[in-house]
Design a protein around this nucleic acid. Structure first.
Length: 274
DNA sequence: ATCACGACCTGGAGGC
DNA sequence: TGCCTCCAGGTCGTGA
């Protein structure tokens, strides 16, 4: 579900909880990603603290508090973070609830691929998941020359290269296909067979694709919703993802679907150079 | 060291 | 209606 634009949409719609006091913490006790459970003791230690700020690095959301600790959340494939009235019944697969007086911030994740953790503010990058992240394309500049140097050493496909969170943080399966179409590069093209100009174009395309999706509040293919439960509109603006057999909007050739590293990949066979 | 693959989970869609 | 198979927006550990 959530790539960078979706997580950023959640972050923005969560802003009304800034300043709220955490009055209670509950967790389901079930393991999430890698069967890791939310750290109950560390979470409970946050009761009494206020939510101070909401940040995002790639697909990770960071909830800073007035305590020295911050909450780290990753939505995985099916995770949602929503603000509810505390009296609303809890949905199935609710795994963490932060009481905020009359409201609650709830983490619901049917597939349990998400993460909830606690880190010390300022030392986020010690967390193994955050330590490996490359630059965030919306909050940090991406040095195309540096990305090109990385690409030169990679024999994998460009698609796999773009999905590598250590190269650029936040690009997922939808926007990888979209950015490669935008840059007119075939997803199966070997990363080390690209020119500096091609990588520059790709980097620019990634930023454009993510910013465009953000303007439309993210892509809701099945179930993505923001913190208020609203869907995003970007699905109708996708150029290739999910459009097998439809005409390419640049050249009218039929969009193809292939599988790269086990993931659906969409591209135009005529205007994306192999 | 690098890469592709399968595993991790549940639920929805489509075929029969 | 019910059962089966396939598919899904992510990440990590494995074995080649």
């Amino acid at each position: 579900m959530p790539e960078l634009p979706e997580v950023e949409t959640v972050r923005r719609t969560l802003e009304p909880v800034i300043g709220a006091t955490i009055t209670s913490v509950w967790d389901s006790g079930l393991g999430l990603h890698m069967n890791r459970k939310p750290p109950r003791r560390k979470l409970r230690a946050l009761v009494g603290a206020k939510i101070a700020a909401l940040r995002r690095i790639g697909k990770y959301l960071i909830v800073d508090t007035t305590a020295p600790q911050s909450i780290v959340a990753h939505l995985g494939m099916s995770g949602r973070l929503r603000i509810h009235d505390a009296r609303d019944p809890r949905a199935p697969h609710t795994h963490a609830v932060f009481g905020l007086g009359a409201r609650e911030l709830r983490f619901v994740d049917p597939r349990r691929f998400g993460q909830i953790d606690v880190v010390t503010r300022g030392a986020e990058r010690v967390h193994p998941s955050l330590a490996i992240l490359g630059p965030d394309p919306l909050t940090e500049g991406i040095d195309a020359a540096a990305v090109s140097r990385l690409a030169r050493r990679r024999k994998s496909s460009l698609k796999a290269f773009v999905l590598d969170q250590g190269v650029i943080a936040g690009v997922g399966n939808i926007y990888a296909s979209e950015a490669l179409w935008r840059a007119k590069l075939r997803p199966s093209k070997r990363a080390n067979r690209t020119t500096v100009a091609q990588i520059s174009s790709l980097v620019a395309s990634i930023r454009e694709v993510l910013e465009r999706a953000l303007v439309h509040n993210g892509t809701s293919l099945r179930d993505f919703v923001d913190a208020d439960g609203e869907s995003g509109d970007n699905a109708e603006y996708l150029w290739v993802y999910g459009r097998r057999g439809e005409p390419c909007c640049r050249c009218k050739a039929k969009i193809k679907r292939s599988v790269l590293q086990g993931r659906a990949t969409y591209y135009c066979p005529t205007c994306q150079t192999p």
